[in-house]
Simulated scan of single mutants.
Amino acid sequence: MSSRNRRTANAADMFPGMPDLLPKAPPKAEDGEHVARTLDEAIGRSNEILDVALAAHPIVGTYWLSSGGNDSAIVGHLLRGRYDAVLHVNTGTGIPATTQYVTDVAAAWGDTLHELHPKNRYEDLVLGKVIAGSGPNAGWRPIWKGFPGPAGHKVMYRQLKNEPLMRFRRETLGDQTRLPRADRKKIVYLGGMRWGESEKRFRNAEAIDPDGSIVWVSPLVHWTDAHMREYRARHRCQQDHEHAEHRLCFDGALPLNEVTEHIHMSGECLCGAYAKPGELDEIEFFYPEVAARLKALEVEAEQAGVKYCRWGQRNGDSEAAVPAGRLCSSCVAIPGQDDLIDQWRDTGLITPEQHAAFTRPAA
């Protein structure tokens, strides 16, 4: 049994209203943080985390980062009225139905939505058309070429997700370089990281993580899987009827992105850096137009002489892969921390031989 499964093995035994906690204290948990909580106590702590972040920093805006995933939905639902607007990074690689879901939920809740787009297109990155603008390769060498494997995840994260968020920060705050540090304003990005979702998160996630002019806040960081299930059961429509779109059947209903029911992930980014075996076939079954777009890019890459011209194909040495950012909850961590791939093996999704192929360095 994987370490993650050992931590959550008893979660299914918890009844509604009972307290729950992770068996081990996360390394970055505050003193006194690792205590058993009922769901209502966990909700109270979530609001307290945001209160502390807002009180400790000169905040000019609080933004819910809506990926279209299930955990992200709980963040927005729980903190409705406490954020100023919704941010959704449309990476250009994902399933359009997820972006439509985010748009629909924001409209239903009366929220302002900022749909962000990367400066450089995924297709141009794959085809090697994005030339480095700084460093020793500036002006002549592509920053990446080919479909990404583990080593390309960091590049894809920076280009497709991080860059739009950093640009939004700059546009929101303006140039603060001439201001004294004490007078510089900050914004809050609300995300759905939890200690219990993966071994990587267990080691690295923090409730409040200031980073320059951004304060990353993870209000659900202390929630267990049982807390998440109980919250969904409490707020998502369970009636035996024809559900409204996204299960917004009543005021205050917790929305559901139908994409997550089909492919068990939000589908907002399909860069393929850590694609699991058969993932493109699964995408094609439910969203053939998305798979067709990726396959057309494969053909274009092959015709252009790109070496790594297959989506989900390993590109580069996996030993170069490093943690890429806060918004890729299902991506694999650095070598030796490949907990997602371990879960695929432990649940029978891949064979031990396939697991070994994923985790050994590329030739």
Rank of each mutant, 00 (worst) to 15 (best):
S2R: 00
S3I: 00
D13S: 09
F15S: 13
F15N: 11
P16R: 12
K24Q: 15
K24H: 15
P27N: 11
K28P: 02
H34V: 12
H34N: 11
T38I: 10
L39T: 11
L39G: 00
I43Y: 06
R45A: 07
E48V: 03
D51S: 08
G61V: 07
W64K: 00
L65S: 13
G68D: 02
S72A: 09
I74F: 06
D84N: 06
H88M: 13
V89Y: 04
G92D: 02
V102L: 08
T103C: 10
T103R: 15
V105M: 11
A106E: 05
W109H: 03
L113M: 05
L116Y: 02
H117V: 10
V126C: 03
K129N: 08
V130C: 02
S134E: 02
N137Q: 05
A138D: 03
R141N: 04
P142K: 04
P142N: 04
P142I: 09
W144F: 14
W144A: 07
G146A: 07
P148S: 04
A151M: 12
Y157A: 08
Y157W: 11
Q159Y: 08
N162A: 10
E163N: 05
P164M: 06
P164V: 06
F168C: 06
G174Y: 06
D175A: 03
Y189I: 14
Y189H: 06
M193Q: 14
W195T: 03
F202S: 01
R203A: 12
I208E: 03
P210C: 07
I214C: 03
P219D: 09
L220T: 00
L220K: 07
V221I: 10
A226H: 01
M228H: 06
R229Q: 08
R229T: 08
E230V: 10
Y231V: 14
A233D: 15
R234I: 09
Q238W: 15
H241K: 12
C249W: 06
E261K: 10
I263N: 05
M265C: 12
M265D: 12
C271Q: 04
A273L: 10
Y274A: 04
G278Q: 08
E279G: 02
E279S: 08
L280A: 04
D281C: 09
Y287R: 00
Y287L: 13
L294M: 12
K307M: 15
Y308S: 12
C309F: 02
Q313G: 07
R314Q: 14
R326W: 13
L327I: 11
L327F: 15
V332C: 03
P335D: 06
D338Y: 04
D339Q: 05
L340V: 11
T351N: 01
Q354E: 14
A357I: 13
T359A: 02
